[in-house]
């Protein structure tokens, strides 16, 4: 009742939808970078959306299935294979025992999520299974996955309820249905909707113009805490020392050197840099699918539109859930 990590690839870790309620003690929300895809993988497996999943960054991951299992892969950044048979994403998969899934490079996206039916049996720390490496908590011993890690399933797979699957020659079952792709994945220029940040007015006029009128490249110095952007530099009209206040994923802060950083899932809970913009919450998953080198352009929207886009995303998720519930 488990899988074994044969190779973690670029980086793989256990995540769920994050750790809530401990930010006042400095504990970040964390969780999957692309929470929409992580939730979708769980929904396909008929799990609670917040079940733990494996977040695979780019490719090179190799996983041994020690037992037959229902699972799903959602996201981007890789293609998944069993020998030379490519596995479809966004579908329920039936994987027989003693099979190895390997991921290889794809042109688009950055992170993919593997969920198994019933979920992985991972001890929660502060209410979440999410791995947060700076404090060494969550996941397997608070670290990213390494070769040899074994992740047990929560429960035995119920073969009796196996839905009507299309069987591939290698014994792998694939559902006829698939869910919609809720997160757009791009290899070129990603349009990211953004709202003026709390300190927008403190920036000089060229900074105010450039944030919405120029292109930025996601730097290779990007990680789960934040994306560093290369492009135009920013400066305040007058130098001011800020007093620390709360920050969260989606905030675009500007360092003293003038470089913008978009805070991502493992963002620290508070910060003292001026915030020139914030990303519409509905676009954070899209950003999570942008790898270093991808260009992004901020398109300015207002508070209302941001909220509307967010609600639209929530509705789309609900629709998928209802749709799958009606499938049996």
């Amino acid at each position: 009742m488990s899988i074994t990590i044969l190779k973690p690839g670029f980086m793989s870790s256990v995540q769920d939808l994050g750790r809530r309620g401990f930010q006042q003690y400095g504990v970040p929300i964390g969780g999957a970078m692309d929470k929409v895809s992580a939730a979708l993988a769980n929904i396909i497996c008929a799990n609670d959306e917040n079940e733990s999943v494996i977040e695979m960054t780019l490719h090179g991951t190799s996983i041994m299935f020690n037992e037959a299992v229902f699972c799903a892969i959602v996201g981007g950044g890789c293609k998944a294979y069993i020998d030379d048979v490519e596995l479809p994403f966004n579908r329920l998969l039936w994987i027989p025992a003693f099979i190895i899934i390997k991921t290889t490079a794809s042109a688009e996206g950055c992170r993919s999520y593997l969920a198994v039916s019933g979920g992985f049996n991972i001890k929660k720390v502060l209410g979440s299974a999410s791995t947060y490496t700076p404090s060494g908590i969550g996941g397997i011993n608070g670290r990213n996955l390494i070769t040899g890690d074994m992740l047990p399933f929560k429960r035995e797979q119920d073969l009796q309820t196996a839905p009507n699957l299309h069987m591939l020659p290698n014994g792998v079952g694939v559902s006829h249905w698939h869910t919609a792709d809720l997160v757009e994945v791009t290899a070129n220029v990603a349009i990211v909707h953004a709202i003026k940040g709390p300190e927008f007015d403190l920036f000089n006029s060229s900074s105010q113009e450039n944030i919405f009128n120029s292109e930025f490249t996601i730097s290779s110095q990007s990680n789960r805490m934040g994306y560093r952007l290369e492009g135009k530099k920013f400066a305040l009209e007058e130098k001011t020392e800020m007093v620390s206040t709360a920050v969260t994923a989606g905030i675009v802060q500007v360092t003293h050197e003038g470089d913008p950083i978009i805070l991502m899932a493992d963002a620290q809970t508070t910060g003292g840099y001026p915030r020139i913009a914030r990303i519409c919450a509905a676009d954070i998953s899209l950003l999570a699918q942008c790898r270093p080198g991808v260009k992004i352009q901020f398109e300015e929207i207002g508070e209302e539109e941001s909220l509307m886009r967010y609600n639209r995303m929530v509705e789309a998720m609900k629709k998928v859930k209802v749709g799958l519930g009606n499938l049996d």
Partner: peptide, 21 residues
């Protein structure tokens, strides 16, 4: 209501879609 984050001179409140901003 989900949680609060107090800072020097500000309080930040996190909430779910059950309530409007």
């Amino acid at each position: 209501f989900i949680e609060c984050v107090p800072a020097y001179g500000s309080l930040t409140v996190y909430f779910s879609e059950q309530v409007s901003a």
